[in-house]
């Protein structure tokens, strides 16, 4: 895409979820949106590969899901509000997700949050 069509500035460590990312991540986010339903969560857990296929995930998206790699899911177009529903299936909360993305232990990440208040 031509540079002038980008509507945002670069912010370190931050992916702006805009139209471009929304197009890229549509299948992945649609799958995650389905996890609002308990029966969908069960269907996913009984056969994850079939569930990826059902929503036509790209190879990149499938691998990111298999690895439960949040940064890779974001790079593949995942939107954090929908990815949170994926993480929830595995009982991962926003501190688990934060720790994984920043390469910290959960305790280290929680300490980083606490220190923001000092």
């Amino acid at each position: 895409m031509a540079e002038e069509l980008h509507h945002h500035t670069h912010i370190e460590g931050t992916t702006i979820f805009d139209g471009e990312m929304a197009m890229k991540g549509y299948a992945l986010n649609k799958m995650c949106f389905s996890f609002n339903r308990a029966d969908a969560r069960e269907e996913y857990l009984s056969d994850p590969e079939a569930y990826y296929q059902k929503f036509k995930l790209s190879d990149e998206q499938k691998q990111a899901c298999r690895d439960k790699n949040v940064l890779a899911m974001i790079a593949a177009g995942g939107n954090i509000y929908y990815l949170a529903k994926f993480a929830g299936i595995f009982k991962l909360d926003v501190q688990d997700v934060g720790a994984q993305q920043t390469g910290m232990t959960k305790d280290e990440f929680k300490e980083k949050l606490r220190k923001a208040g000092d």
């Binding site: 460590g13 931050t14 990815l83 993305q101 920043t102 923001a116």
Partner: peptide, 13 residues
């Protein structure tokens, strides 16, 4: 707050 990306955990008092 920021939940996503390498900048997750960002808070700006």
């Amino acid at each position: 707050h920021q939940l996503d990306g390498e900048r997750a955990g960002f808070i700006n008092r």
